[in-house]
Simulated assay, not measured.
Amino acid sequence: MTNATAPGRDDLKATAPQRVAAGTVLQVGPLKPSLAATLASEWSAATLPTGPERAGFLAEHGSAVTAVVTSGRTGVDAGLMAALPHLGAIVHFGVGYDTTDVERARELGIGVSNTPDVLTDCVADTAIGLLIDTLRQFSAADRYVRAGRWASEGNVPLSRKVSGSRVGIIGLGRIGSAIATRLEAFHCEIAYFNRNQVPDSPYRYAPSAVELAASVDVLVVAAAGGAGTRHLVGRDVLEALGPDGYLINVARGSVVDEQALVELLGSGGLAGAGLDVFTAEPEVPTALLTADNVVLLPHVGSGTVQTRAAMEALTLRNLADYLESGALTTAVVEPHRAVR
């Protein structure tokens, strides 16, 4: 994978391949409005219909598509790949790509890219914000004040200290490492579980997610999504975390057994949770909506003006580079299908 500095809009306009024929770029799923506008104006991109007209659109235009731009929330499955016989690249806006059938793309020689690095800081910041809010119960205290309960009912219950906590991180990649670095400033004792032990890591390695959970006060989920990590944080892990433990998830909803999480939060089996992601977004389990021991965010981990602009620029760079040279700037899977 090649890491590149995200380009500015002037650079993109200068390198945008004006020779690309209309219809070769397809937008799949909703995207940032300015990104969608650029795709339409500079690459004459069409948007894949979601209704009954989808089949007819693919039958008429599918063979002309050589590149798809999508997001981690939508992705491209094997069925859509089959309907796009000349597809050579799937360009993701975002770091996640678990909704795309990456193995099938690899088999077909279709390149896959994402936007790593540029969102690391904001997602790590979100994890720390969620952790502090969840343990200190600031959002619940804010609601308490706004409801006039401070004057009528007195002080809120005491909350949990953040500094010095034992924190376990599942997934010590770019984002997990950035979270750990921030936690060092809070003098936290940090441990982690990863698919492989990270060489020279200063943090304690736990051989399993269950063992990690059993040894910490807070468990932060920063692992990649996809079939390989589905319910990695299952009931056994959550029960090991225990009634005094807190879960923070800034990864993907699929990584956590959401049903078990809801049950344990409701029964006292967990102390609390801070969640930026859910299994069936934008749907959130009803039981969580009124729970004061849970902080809920609408998947805003990378949601800052600066980061989304950098993600957009890197998405466009990947698309431009592929259409010009057949290569992707930040490839998850290198493309091998010839550019038409």
Rank of each mutant, 00 (worst) to 15 (best):
N155T: 15
F138E: 11
S165D: 03
G171P: 02
D133E: 14
A178D: 10
V123I: 15
R160N: 05
G154R: 08
L172H: 10
Y144D: 02
L172F: 07
D121K: 10
A147E: 06
I179C: 01
T181A: 12
A127M: 12
Y144H: 02
R143D: 01
A140R: 03
V167A: 06
V167G: 08
I132Y: 09
C122S: 15
Q137A: 11
V145C: 03
C122K: 14
L130K: 10
I128N: 10
S139E: 03
C122N: 15
F186H: 06
I132Q: 01
G173Y: 02
D125S: 10
R143G: 00
R182G: 08
R136E: 11
A151Q: 13
G171L: 06
T126I: 13
R149H: 08
R174L: 06
T120H: 09
T134E: 08
S139W: 00
G171C: 06
A185P: 06
S163H: 13
S177R: 09
A124L: 05
L119E: 10
I132R: 02
I169H: 03
R136W: 12
N155F: 15
R146I: 00
Y144R: 04
G164W: 00
A185I: 10
G176N: 01
I169R: 06
R166W: 06
G171K: 07
G148V: 00
L183W: 02
T126K: 14
A147R: 02
G129D: 13
D125I: 14
F138D: 13
S159D: 06
L119T: 04
R136T: 11
G148F: 00
V123H: 11
N155K: 15
S163L: 03
R149K: 15
S163G: 11
T126C: 15
A127C: 13
R166S: 12
E184Y: 03
Y144C: 02
R160Y: 14
P157A: 05
I179T: 04
L135D: 08
G148I: 00
T126M: 15
Q137V: 06
V123A: 09
G171F: 01
S163K: 07
D121Q: 12
N155Q: 15
A178L: 01
L158H: 14
G148A: 03
I128R: 08
D133I: 08
I175G: 02
L119C: 12
R182P: 03
G154Q: 07
L131R: 12
I132K: 01
R174F: 09
V118H: 07
E184M: 03
D125P: 04
I179N: 13
W150M: 04
P157D: 04
F186P: 00
S165T: 05
S159W: 06
L183Y: 04
F186M: 09
V145F: 00
V156P: 11
I175L: 04
V156R: 14
W150F: 13
T134I: 10
R143Q: 03
I128Y: 12
G171R: 10
S165A: 14
W150H: 11
L183H: 04
R143A: 00
W150V: 01
T181P: 00
D142L: 09
L172Y: 12
V156K: 05
I128D: 07
Y144T: 02
A124S: 12
G176E: 01
L131W: 13
V162A: 04
E153S: 09
D121F: 07
A180K: 05
D142P: 06
V145G: 01
G168W: 07
I169G: 05
A151E: 13
A140D: 04
C122R: 15
T134A: 07
